[in-house]
């Protein structure tokens, strides 16, 4: 546990000692604001809910989370620090979890900085607090799931571009398999109903939307948790075997 925190602390300090943290947070907030207000019609909808805000998260994370995740292992490999890290008295597992947690905490911080949105709602009307809280929880879990995918693709390569693109594609699949226009299209093509349902059950979209309803369903938590565990486990295997 202590070792995990030591690794996470170094990784986090790496973000803040370089421009990455600041550039990322500024762009994250700008894009969130732009899509929510300009594209989502936050005010026009005349609704005291964060629906117009959360609806963009699966898409924006697709671009932004791999940008954080792509460097997790690819950079260590390229700079040769992987050799330092794995000759320390630290297990591979501790390093994988530590670095993942650092990225996740950082994404959580960026997400927290969007708090003016709910405050605005409280100022303008009387929104329902439950869906907002579970929406934030869902968004954070989704960011973790994307990040674990990026951690996995990052462990395969020393090339950050390859890492970025592959994790983006995997995240895209995770979103599209439950995106109504796609599932409707599949149904129209004659795919069996049960098959389409199964596919959408694998989608982050499905579980994220379910969480936005204000109820925390155990199955949604299990989905995100198992996705993260699976990806980190794969990362672990790759790093152990591909040195």
């Amino acid at each position: 546990m202590k070792n995990i925190w030591i690794i996470a602390k170094r990784e986090l300090s790496g973000y803040f000692n370089s421009p990455i943290a600041y550039v990322f947070i500024v762009i994250f907030l700008l894009l969130m604001g732009f899509f929510t207000f300009m594209m989502g019609g936050f005010f026009r909808s005349n609704e005291a809910s964060l629906g117009a805000f959360f609806v963009w998260h699966p898409w924006l994370y697709m671009l932004l989370v791999p940008a954080i995740g792509m460097r997790l292992w690819a950079e260590e490999r390229k700079q040769g620090t992987l050799e330092l890290l794995f000759t320390m008295p630290i297990t591979v597992n501790q390093a994988v979890i530590g670095k993942f947690l650092a990225g996740w905490l950082f994404l959580g911080l960026a997400l927290l900085l969007t708090c003016p949105m709910p405050f605005t709602l409280y100022y303008l009307g009387s929104p329902d607090g439950g869906p907002m809280v579970t929406g934030y929880v869902g968004s954070f879990l989704m960011a973790g799931a994307y990040l674990s995918v990026a951690s996995m693709t990052s462990s395969f390569t020393r090339n950050q571009v390859i890492s970025f693109i592959t994790s983006l594609v995997i995240c895209l699949l995770l979103v599209l398999s439950g995106y109504p226009p796609v599932t409707n299209l599949l149904l129209k093509w004659g795919a069996a109903n049960s098959l389409v349902e199964l596919a959408s059950a694998f989608s982050v979209m499905f579980h994220f939307e379910s969480l936005q309803r204000g109820v925390i369903d155990f199955r949604d938590l299990l989905y995100f948790a198992s996705l993260i565990v699976f990806c980190l486990f794969t990362t672990n295997l790759v790093l152990k075997n591909q040195r």
Binding site: N17, Q79, L84, M88
Partner: peptide
């Protein structure tokens, strides 16, 4: 290690502090 790798964005003291903790 060969080529003496380290984390370029950290300070000398910060880097040594990390290694000391890891050890």
């Amino acid at each position: 290690p060969e080529n003496a790798p380290s984390y370029p964005e950290s300070t000398v003291e910060g880097f040594l502090s990390f290694i000391a903790e890891a050890k």
